[in-house]
Structure formats: C-alpha cells, structure tokens
Design a protein around this nucleic acid. Structure first.
Lengths: 150, 150
DNA sequence: TTTTTTTTATTGTATATGCAACTAGATTGC
DNA sequence: GCAATCTAGTTGCATATACAATAAAAAAAA
C-alpha cells in the first residue's frame, strides 16, 4: 500500500462525515428507542406520527418529501402502523393516492409518548451540546433549501 | 386533543433531535452510497474497511465499541464482506474471538474507493457547511468521553 | 380521443440495525 | 479442580432503509 493511499485512509478515518453522522445516528436513535420502548413505539414511527399530527390527512409522497424518506420505506412503515391501529387510510379524489391520518388511538399514543420523548430529548441535548443542536438546525435549513433548487 | 398536547406536538416537530439527525443521516448516506455504487460498495461497509485498515487485525467487539455498533450487526456485515473476499478471519489465542483483517482485495477496493469518497465528502461538506462539520467532531468527542465514564 | 409520459404507490430483493436467546470459551470464587 | 459467572459471537426475529420493477391512475401530447 502506497504512502499516499495510507495517508488518504488516515484522512478518511479522521474526517469522513458519514462515519461520524452514522455513528451519532445510532447512538441517538438508541436513546430515543430506549425511552419509548415501553410504549411499543420506535422513534422512526414517532416521526411519522408527528408528521401526521402536524399535517393532518397527508399523502405518502408529501411525507417522503418532507422527511427525505424513500416512498417504499414509508409504505412499509405505514403498513405496520395501520396494523397497530395508529393510522388509517382515507379515500382520495386522485385514485393513485393513499392519504392517511392519525386514528384516535394514534393520537392517544402520541399524547402518552410526550414525557418519554422529553426525557430522551433532554438526555440527548445534554450529551451532544447546545452548539451541535443549533448547527443541526442550520444544516436542515441548508438541506431543505438545496431541495428547493433541484 | 388538549391545547397543551398540541403545543407539545408542535415542540417535538420543531425541536426533536432524532427527527433531524435521522433525516440528515438518510440524505448523507445516500450521497456517499451513490458515489460508491459503481464499486458495489456501501458507505456502511467502507466504514468497516477503514476501521480494519487503521486497526489492523481487529476483534469484532473492538470495532463495535469504536463505531457504537451492535455486535450482531457487525457480525452480519463482516459475513457479507468475507463472502465478497474483502475481509478474512484470523485464528486467535482466545477461542471465542473471531479477529479479522483486510485481504489484498479489500485493500485494493479501499484504494479504488478513495476518489469516490472524496467526491462525496466534498459535496456533503458543501451541503452541510463547515460549522456543522466542526460541531460533528465536537459531538463525537462528547459521546466518546461519555463512554469512558460508563 | 387515443397514445405517450408522468406520477403515486406497492412489491421483490438486499443491506443495516438492534434485541433476545443461545453457544462456546474464558475467568473467578470456592 | 469445579461450579458459577462473565465475555464474545452467532442466530432468530422484527424494523428501517433504498433500488428496481411493476401496476394503476392522471396528465400531457399527438
């Protein structure tokens, strides 16, 4: 292995954004999932419940655009959450669309989830630091405005 | 739904670290995966190649500790990467251990991956901004020192 | 109006991820 | 030395994720 390649490997190890972002994602996802576990809820599903609570009756493709989620991923997630009675599909004018919304049970679950979410959020903010959380907001804004350009 | 609950839902939607971190993780992982696709390599696997290149012959539990990865997750990843000829298992004194290292092919793949990684890294840094990347480093340091305490 | 293209969602396939249960070695306590 | 315990890894299972191929409906073009 050449010296140049070895130096590049050191660079990747030290600087790769993906390594670090993916690692933080695992750590933080586990903290929220731990906090929510006794509700049988995962943070990935909480994201979707929140989106539905905020957006009302919403089409999968809108949620996907908002969350940068592949539509096939959402399709399976919604399937599971329908099976649990948290979401329901509503008929639409457009025959292709499968708009969904929270059920009463979904809404109740969300209400119950609030204190558990708060606990995880507190722990995570303390762990990562205020500055990181600020920059997370900024990065989100940058990503969303990059979307607007495309 | 009470006004208090509705307000909390707005708070979660606006402030949840997990929602935003997970979203960025999807966006950024996709950028690296796109860049690496023609090598048949995913960024999650590149992470493991890099760890092996840096650490030499290494035991799964060491990699897991370093990357905050569940050992069962690594077990399957290594399995796939062995099947592709990128990693090989080395016998150990401790009969429980399954230490592995890069093969020549793995090393070669890593060398070929460098320019594709660089391209993705450039794009991602431009997208997220220098400040975010700095804070990512800081957050990693905080997480690793929190480990040391446990 | 018919054909073509685009949009929306689902399904097949593969990888990534973590928890629980288990196996097999190594360590510790007695 | 042997039993109890601890550690390292694998395997079963469920969810999360994305790409490719497909189906079905809507929109655009002809």
């Amino acid at each position: 292995m050449s010296k140049h390649s070895q130096a590049m490997i050191d660079t990747i190890a030290a600087q790769c954004v993906a390594v670090r972002l993916r690692m933080l994602n695992r750590v933080i996802t586990n903290i929220y999932d731990d906090a929510l576990r006794e509700l049988g809820l995962k943070v990935s599903q909480l994201n979707i419940l929140i989106a539905a609570a905020k957006m009302g009756t919403v089409r999968p493709c809108e949620v996907c655009e908002y969350l940068h989620l592949d539509i096939s991923t959402l399709s399976r997630n919604v399937e599971r959450m329908k099976a649990r009675g948290w979401l329901e599909v509503v008929p639409a004018d457009d025959g292709r669309a499968q708009p969904f919304r929270l059920t009463q049970e979904g809404r109740q679950l969300l209400r119950k989830a609030i204190p558990f979410w708060s606990q995880a959020q507190r722990r995570v903010k303390k762990l990562l630091g205020e500055r990181f959380v600020e920059q997370l907001d900024q990065a989100m804004i940058r990503v969303r405005s990059a979307d607007a350009v495309d």
